[in-house]
Design a protein around this nucleic acid. Structure first.
Length: 767
RNA sequence: GCCGAGGUGGUGAAACGGUAUACACGCAGCCCUCAGAAGGCUGUGAGCGCAAGCUCGUGGAGGUUCAAAUCCUCUCCUCGGCACCA
C-alpha cells in the first residue's frame, strides 16, 4: 500500500495545466455554451474557506459541463476598490493600490492551489482604468438619460470623519472606523434613479428566471410598491393607501423634517415644537429605530377633514418618516395600530370609520425603494467624471476624455474632506466647454457600481472602443448559473438587475435578466459552530489544510458536507474521512487489470447506475449525493479481486470534477505515459479534464429482479424478490404475496377488502 | 410585528406520497502489530427479547390516504431578512 501524499502531485499538475493552457475558452464558438459565474472575491489578502466552498462548486460544474461537450466559460476577477483597502493601507502605511495588487497576485496563486479551471484571460479588476473607464461611461449614459442626478438625501453621517457612511459601515449606530455616533444628515450627492426601474425590477409569478424565492420575495418587499391617493388637508398633502377610512382621520402627523412644520407652528407652541425637533435630531439612527414608543408634539394648528367636515389638530412626531410618501399622514386611530397608540398616548379622539369614504385625491404609486446614492467621499474608487466650472456649471467629462484616472499621489488619510481634494494638480483642470479654469469632482463611486455589470466585461475584457462587443454578449448571455451569497439580495443582486435593464434600454442587449439561474450558497462555520473570525480564533485556514490533506480532500469534503446552501461547522474528523477515501482510490491501480475486460452483469449495473446518478445529481447541483454514489461504487469495487480498465477509467472520470489532481495522476498512469513528449503532452486532450464524460446505457439499468414490499393495513410485513418478467402482472405478484408465511400470519382468518399494487414497488392489502 | 427558509440517529445528512435513516463521521468489538499509527472486518434509531420477531419512531396535536418526513389545518422552536412604509 502506497501512502497518498497530495503535495507530491498537486502542484505538478497545476503547473502542467497552466503551461498547456488547458482551460482557455474560445468565445467565438457559442453553439453549446455554458457560462458559470461565482461572485467575484474582494481583494482582502487571502482566500478563506468560503471562497474554496463557492469556487469549488463553480469549478465542479465547469469541469462536468466541459466533459459533456459544452464550450464552458468559467472566469474570475477582483472586486478591488473600496474602503477596506484604504483602511488596511492607512494602518500599514502602504498605498491602497500597491496593497491591492499584491493581494490579487497572492489570491491568484491561491486559486491555483485550489486547482480551479479558471480562464484568467477573461478577467477584470475593478481598480484597473481599463475597467473603471466603463463605470464612468455608464455614469455619463445615466446622466444623458436623466437617471443620474445631484440631490440631497438624508444619510448616515460621521461627524468626526466628516463623511457619508454606507449602511454596512455603521455598526451598532457607530462609525466602524472611529466609533463616533452616526447622525442623520442631508447630504448633497450623486444618485442613480433606480426608482424609474422599480416596476421592471418587481419579480412576477412565474419568475422570469430561476432565482431563489427568498431573493425574489425579499427584493419585491424591498421595492415595496403600494398604490394609494394623495389627499389635501388645507394645503397639507398626505399619502394614504386606505382613502376609504378618511372619515376616521382625527388628526394629522408631520415628520419632524417636514418643510411645513415651521409655518404651521403657532407662536405659543414654538418652544415645545423646537425642543422636540432638536431632541429628535440629536438622536442617533439606532436610537430612533430602537425606540418604538410614540413621542410627538402639537403644532397648535388645525385643518379641515374634507370628509367628516371637522377641524382636526396637526401634530409632529418621529413615527412619521420624511423619506416615504409626503412625509405627512392622516391618522386613523380606529383602523391603524400605530395611530391608535399615538392617540392613546396623547389622548386624541378615536372615532369609528365607515370604510366607505370617497375623498377626492390624486392617484399615486409609492415605493419603499430609494434612489441609489453612489457618492463616496473616499479615495479608493472610480472617480466620478464631472467637472465644475464657474461659468458653465456642472459639466460632464466628454466620452473621449475617459477614463478619468485616479491619481496615485493623494493624501488618503481621513482629514475631514474627500481625499481627492488634496491632489491639487489633479483637481484643477480645464472646463471642457469654455476651456476656462475648473475643478474636478472629488467624490468616487460606490463599489457596488463596479460589481453591477462585471460579468458582461469578462466576455470582452480588452475592448477599449466600447463597453463590450454586442455580438459576443448576445451569444453568451444570459449566463447559465450564478453562484452567490444570500447577503447580496438587496444590494448587488438588485443593482446588477437594474444595470441589465438599463443596458437593454440603451440597446446594448436584448434580454431582461442576466442569469438564467442563481443559487445561494451556504456558509462554513468554525469548528466551534460560530462564524469564522480572527477575534474568535476559530478560523480554519485553507492553506494549512492544503498542506495537511491536499486541495482535492478539501474540495471533496466541502462538496460532500451537505447541500450547496448548507450552513455548518468545519469538522476536522470529517476531512480526515475524505482523505481516507482518496487514499483508497490511490491504491486502486493495485487491482487494475488491463487485458481482462470481463465484467459481470452486477459490475455493469452498478457502473451505469453510478454514471446516471452522478450525471443527474450534477445537473441538479446535488454535489453531496453525487459523491455518495461514488463512495458506494468504490465500496463495491473494493470488494472485488480485480477491476477492469473500463471501471477504473469511468470511476476516475466521474470523480475528476471534484478531485482534479488525483484523478489526473491516476489517469496518466495508464493513459499518459506514451502521450507525452519531452515532459509535455503531445495533445491536451489526453488530460483527463479534456476527456468526454461517460455515458450510461439504459440496458444496464433494468434490474433482473426487484424487491417488492408487502403491506398489510399500511404496515410492511414482508419483502419479496420478484423476477422482472412478472413484475407487470398484478395477479401473479398478488398470489405470491398472499402465499408468504409472514403475510399469512397477519391475514389469516380475515378477508382482503382491497389490494393496491404499485408496479415494482409495493403491494398493499387492506383487511 | 411582518416575510422567507428550516426542525429526521450521538454528529453532517439521504429519501418521485410507496420498505425512514443511503453515504460519511463518531463510537464499540474483533483481526493485523512487540506496541502504537495506518489498514481490514463486523455492529450501531429507541424499547422488549437468547433468538425469530414484536412495538414505537422524522419538533408537537389533529386531518386526508390502502400508504405521510413528504399533502392540508393548528401549534411550538431555530435560523435569515425587513422593520413605525401610512
Amino acid at each position: 500500500m502506497k501512502k497518498y501524499i497530495p503535495s507530491q502531485i498537486e502542484s505538478k499538475w497545476q503547473k502542467e495545466w497552466r503551461e498547456n493552457q488547458l482551460y482557455l475558452s474560445d468565445l467565438s464558438d457559442d453553439k453549446l455554451k455554458y457560462y458559470v459565474l461565482v461572485e467575484l472575491p474582494y481583494t482582502s489578502g487571502d482566500l478563506h474557506m468560503g471562497h474554496w466552498f463557492t469556487f469549488t462548486m463553480g469549478d465542479v460544474l465547469a469541469r462536468f459541463k466541459r466533459g459533456q461537450g459544452f464550450n464552458v466559460l468559467f472566469p474570475n476577477g477582483f472586486d478591488a476598490f473600496g474602503l477596506p483597502a484604504e483602511n488596511a493601507a492607512i494602518k500599514r502605511g502602504i498605498h491602497p493600490r500597491d496593497w491591492t495588487y499584491k493581494n490579487m497576485e497572492r489570491m491568484k496563486d491561491q486559486f491555483d492551489t485550489m486547482g480551479t479551471a479558471i480562464d484568467w484571460t477573461k478577467t477584470m479588476m475593478a481598480c484597473d482604468p481599463k475597467y473603471y473607464k466603463w463605470n464612468q461611461w455608464i455614469f455619463l449614459k445615466m446622466l444623458e438619460k436623466g437617471l443620474a442626478y445631484r440631490g440631497k438625501l438624508l444619510s448616515n453621517w460621521c461627524p468626526k470623519d466628516q463623511t457619508v457612511l454606507a449602511n454596512e459601515n455603521v455598526e451598532d449606530g457607530k462609525c466602524w472606523r472611529c466609533g463616533a455616533k452616526v447622525v442623520q444628515k442631508e447630504i448633497d450627492q450623486w444618485l442613480f434613479k433606480i426608482i424609474d426601474y422599480a416596476d421592471q425590477l418587481i419579480w412576477q409569478e412565474p419568475p422570469q428566471a430561476a432565482w431563489p424565492k427568498p431573493l425574489r420575495v425579499g427584493q419585491n418587499d424591498w421595492i415595496g410598491r403600494s398604490e394609494g391617493l394623495i389627499l389635501d388637508f388645507d394645503g397639507i398633502k398626505v399619502f394614504t393607501t386606505k382613502p376609504e377610512t378618511t372619515d376616521g382621520a382625527t388628526f394629522l402627523v408631520l415628520a419632524p423634517e417636514h418643510p411645513l412644520v415651521g409655518k404651521l407652528t403657532a407662536n405659543k407652541q414654538k418652544d415645545d415644537v423646537e425642543s422636540y425637533i432638536s431632541r429628535i435630531k440629536s438622536k442617533s439612527e439606532l436610537e430612533r429605530k430602537e425606540n418604538k414608543e410614540k413621542t410627538g408634539v402639537f403644532t397648535g394648528s388645525n385643518v379641515l377633514n374634507p370628509v367628516s367636515g371637522k377641524k382636526i389638530p396637526v401634530w409632529v412626531a418621529d413615527y412619521v418618516l420624511m423619506g416615504y410618501g409626503t412625509g405627512a399622514i392622516m391618522a386613523v386611530p380606529y383602523a391603524d395600530e400605530r395611530d391608535r397608540q399615538f392617540a392613546k398616548e396623547f389622548k386624541l379622539p378615536i372615532i369609528k370609520t365607515s370604510f366607505k369614504a370617497r375623498p377626492a385625491g390624486q392617484k399615486q404609486t409609492q415605493y419603499h425603494l430609494h434612489d441609489w446614492s453612489i457618492s463616496r467621499q473616499r479615495y479608493w474608487g472610480t472617480p466620478i467624471p464631472i467637472i465644475y466650472c464657474d461659468n458653465c456649471g456642472t459639466v460632464p467629462v466628454p466620452e473621449e476624455d475617459l477614463p478619468v484616472e485616479l491619481p496615485y499621489k493623494v493624501d488618503y488619510a481621513p482629514q475631514g474632506k474627500a481625499p481627492l481634494a488634496t491632489a491639487e494638480d489633479w483637481v484643477n483642470t480645464q472646463c471642457p466647454k469654455c476651456k476656462g479654469k475648473a475643478k474636478r469632482e472629488v467624490e468616487t463611486m460606490d463599489t457596488f457600481v463596479d460589481s453591477a455589470w462585471y460579468f458582461f466585461r469578462y466576455l470582452d475584457p480588452e475592448n477599449d472602443k466600447e463597453i463590450f462587443d454586442k455580438k459576443v454578449v448576445d451569444a453568451w448571455m444570459p449566463l447559465e448559473i450564478y453562484i452567490g451569497g444570500p447577503e447580496h439580495t438587496l444590494g448587488h443582486a438588485l443593482y446588477s438587475r437594474f444595470f441589465t435593464k438599463f443596458f437593454k434600454q440603451l440597446g446594448l442587449i436584448d434580454f431582461d435578466e442576466y442569469a438564467q439561474k442563481r443559487i445561494h450558497h451556504g456558509t462554513i462555520l468554525g469548528p466551534d459552530g460560530a462564524r469564522m473570525s480572527k477575534s474568535r480564533g476559530n478560523v480554519v485556514n485553507p492553506d494549512d489544510q492544503v498542506k495537511k490533506y491536499g486541495a482535492d480532500s478539501i474540495r471533496l469534503y466541502l462538496m460532500f458536507l451537505g447541500p450547496f446552501d448548507i450552513v455548518t461547522p468545519w469538522s476536522p474528523e470529517g476531512i480526515n474521512g475524505i482523505y481516507r477515501f482518496l487514499q483508497r482510490i490511490w491504491n486502486l491501480p493495485e487491482k487494475l487489470t488491463i487485458n481482462d475486460e470481463r465484467l459481470t452483469m452486477n459490475d455493469l449495473q452498478i457502473m451505469h447506475k453510478t454514471i446516471k446518478k452522478v450525471t443527474e445529481d450534477l445537473d441538479s447541483v446535488k454535489f453531496n449525493t453525487a459523491i455518495a454514489g461514488l463512495m458506494e461504487w468504490l465500496n463495491y469495487l473494493s470488494k472485488k479481486e480485480k477491476i477492469s480498465e473500463e471501471e477504473y477509467k469511468t470511476f476516475l472520470l466521474l470523480l475528476s470534477p471534484f478531485a482534479p489532481h488525483i484523478t489526473e495522476e491516476l489517469w496518466q498512469l495508464i493513459n499518459g505515459k506514451w502521450k507525452m513528449e519531452n515532459g509535455k503532452w503531445k495533445d491536451k486532450k489526453f488530460s483527463i479534464h479534456k476527456h468526454s464524460w461517460p455515458q450510461f446505457d439504459n440496458k444496464f439499468l433494468e434490474e433482473e429482479e426487484v424487491f417488492i414490499a408487502v403491506q398489510v393495513n399500511g404496515k410492511v410485513r414482508d419483502s419479496l424478490l420478484i423476477q422482472k418478467d412478472i413484475v407487470s402482472n398484478k395477479e401473479t405478484v398478488e398470489k405470491i404475496a398472499l402465499e408468504s408465511p409472514k403475510v399469512q400470519k397477519f391475514i389469516e382468518g380475515k378477508s382482503v377488502k382491497k389490494t393496491v399494487y404499485v408496479q415494482g414497488r409495493i403491494i398493499s392489502f387492506v383487511i
